[in-house]
Amino acid sequence: MRDILRKEMKLSASMITYLFIPFGLLFLVPGYPVLCSAFFVCLGIFQSFQNACEANDIVFSVLLPIAKKDVVKGKYIFVCLIEASGFLFMILSVFIRMTVFRESAVYRANALMNANLFALANACIIFGLFNLLFVGGFFRTAYKFARPFVSFIAGAFAVIVIAETLHHVPGLEMLNAFGFEHFAFQVSLLAGGIIISALITFCSYRKACDHFERIDL
């Protein structure tokens, strides 16, 4: 598995994928829809798939002495690794906002959602949707990537709109907690987001293996 991951990182990946990882730091920008940073990380990964298609990467991988499902596994591990890297930047940004800038007026006066653990949970769900709609959709054909990406865009922006709106609903203000307010509640939201994302990704991976085994290249 280490070899196929090295192949993904060194041959299949586009440089743009790596350059877009620090977009996780958009979580620090005040007055900005912070969940767009998760979208940008996914946009970077999309470039690698585009790159891989141009380079006949899938056929090359299938000809290597590995099982076909390992080709799928390699792609999913690579995608999750990039998402996790972007997520680390988001965690760092949230930590800074929860501690150093917890009383900062510019963040407090923000009409958009705060970059807190709930935002991280939503970022996880956006990553899960990317894995489900885009990566899973790609492996239905192993060459069409435009339609799966459009599906992901629709899904991601639905999550962003809902997440940005929820904290304005009376009774749900604690979703927009600052600093360590409602900490246990916020942690449970984050845990929920991670679990949902992991489950979606696992189901998508299983289905992608199944599809990839059946398609003709």
Binding site: D3, R6, K7, K10, L11, E54, A55, N56, D57, V59, F60, L64, P65, I66
Partner: peptide
């Protein structure tokens, strides 16, 4: 078909040999 048209042969070989 050609593989990885913009990667150096050396880099492609480095990956392939590991398999």
């Amino acid at each position: 078909i050609s593989w990885y048209p913009r990667r150096k042969i050396r880099d492609i070989v480095e990956i392939v040999r590991a398999f």
